[in-house]
Amino acid sequence: MTAVTTPAAVRRPHLTRWVLRLHRPELVAWAGLVLLGAALLLWLGGPLTDAAADGWRQYNACDWSDKCSYDQDAILRYKDAYNYLTLPLAALPLLVGAWAGAALTGRELESGTAQLAWAQGVTPARWLATRLALPAVAVTAGTSLLVFLHHRAWSAARGRIGTAKSWWDPWTFHTNGPSTVALALAALAVGALAGLTLRRALPALAVSLVATAGVWGLAQWLMPHLWPAVTRVTGLKHGYDGLYSGITVDQGLVTRTGEHIPEPVCSAHTTEECLRMFEKRNAVGFFHTYHPYAHYGPLQLTTSALALALAGLFTVAAFLVLRRLTGALRPGKGATA
């Protein structure tokens, strides 16, 4: 019995089919993970949220003059489920990066199977392009579905559950929008780059994890500065405006000359004493520079754009490393002899 095909009328190498075949176990695992996550997020956004909202309604209806009973278990169950789903979803780029570094490029170069592919009718450039494009499609599709369902679940709880996470909670912020998808793509590219650079699976896995965490941290650190924030100025008696309603960029005192200065540490026991101390420093009010909920969309998009730009940079770097590794990526024009 032989299963060898004869050359058909095809001209271009069927690389796609083989990348899918070689990584079939991972693809199946990814599909399973996405389906499981989707099912859990639907459960979170549906029955769990409804039960917890009922519990909160009962709680809010209590007048506390008498014994009051409310479904505390439902509230706690929602909270646990939300946290246990949000954190892994936020950490998904780490998984993608580790896999890309270890399995997508690192192991291939370590075992020499990358060279095996290049010794067939496949140029290194096409090899890398296919190896990046196919996982990028799978990662984009799977992660997009998950963040969409997460956002849906989060919205269902908004205003109904007292302990629901605010939109600006770092994990919630990213898992609610496309920035997690973009970060996963950046992780894919940085993992591929690490694998090509180190050419060994295990070190590439470790470096990919660290680099992905770095990219995540960088995106989170730069995020508030990627869209102009609003500044609210209020009188000293009024206190800060908009505190704990969004992402704070800066806060402090406004002086008589309009200068913004940091709020000095006040260890007095009463607010009055502190206000007198502020007045001594020429303060006339407070300022609060922050992003209100209306900025969620622009912040998500600019953060995603930043992550995608990083993904692009890592991809270019990966092709440059590959060129250094193998020489010309494409067959050059007939060289002179």
Binding site: V4, T5, P7, A8, R11, P13, H14, W18, G121
Partner: peptide, 18 residues
């Protein structure tokens, strides 16, 4: 083994001698 040879056929469509 058969898949490996089929891969050879797919990756060298113009030259493969099964």
């Amino acid at each position: 083994v058969a898949e490996t040879l089929r891969m050879g056929a797919d990756l060298n469509p113009e030259r493969w001698d099964a």
